[in-house]
Design a protein around this nucleic acid. Structure first.
Lengths: 135, 135
DNA sequence: CGTTACATTTACGTTAACGTCAAGCACTCT
DNA sequence: AGAGTGCTTGACGTTAACGTAAATGTAACG
């Protein structure tokens, strides 16, 4: 028999919005894209702990510029959804590719940071000269 | 005979496309957005060495997810366009902010890389188990 | 039972960064 | 002169990730 679990730590859509700084539209949009699947209590959405974990992963993915479609596929891996070997192998490969991309991006980013710092050195010197002249 | 224009320090739009792997539409689009300003030889665009340098900066900026509008502002800094102190100071601040953002992004990226690597460890182990069972 | 306060669905609007025609010059070769 | 090619300027189309508005539902409060 299925117990309804009164201690259900579920959040309403509004509580989710406040907690994670997203709009209700965003949550429904993610659901439409099959990134989330909250339970429904008579036409209302209820977000479980798993839903919240998924949302956090989604938001983290977005911070790195991954598309929602990318994220949807990555979520499968994080969930070890790959119940069969072929599926698991595919998501594994996908993760490998992504990892390589991220490392490349990190390397480029380091270079860009160094270059920008150098630029700012020059700008800083120019500013100092200006201020000295304004004396 | 066709003169090859020995002093040709300029490239046509097509040569630019081939050299930098962008479409003509893209180059015209950047021009409309005031990121580029090639000279015109009787209704035709000619790209100078400076134009090419700018394009390279644009493309590099894009690789890091900067918007074209962001890039347009950064170009001002790279060009030391800030002929007056106020302008220079503003672009300098803009660069500072950008640098901070990039460093934060780099830090987050490192964390994400570590996490993803860990995930892949698990997935790899699961795959190995599968293959062993298939023996 | 009416009002207030959110929820939900449906659907059109928005922005960025181009893609994709369409129609017309301007050459150059034949 | 005619044909072909490349370049030009519109101008509408496209995708992602939501925003925003309208119409409707429902739950709790007094």
């Amino acid at each position: 028999m299925t117990i309804i679990d009164p201690s259900a730590e579920t959040l309403t859509i509004r509580e989710m919005c406040d907690t994670y700084q997203v709009t209700a539209r965003t949550l429904r949009f993610y659901e439409a894209k099959e990134l989330l699947a909250p339970i429904r209590s008579r036409s209302k959405r209820l977000y479980t702990k798993q839903d919240r974990a998924r949302l956090q992963l989604i938001l983290r993915g977005k911070r790195f510029g991954f598309s929602l479609e990318d994220i949807r596929q990555l979520l499968d891996m994080y969930n070890r959804n790959g119940s069969n070997q072929a599926q698991l192998a595919r998501t594994f490969d996908l993760g490998q590719d992504r990892l390589a991309q991220m490392k490349a991006q990190a390397a480029e980013l380091q270079i860009a940071i160094a270059e920008l710092e150098e630029e700012l050195q020059g700008a800083s010197a120019a500013l100092a000269a200006f201020r000295a002249a304004a004396e």
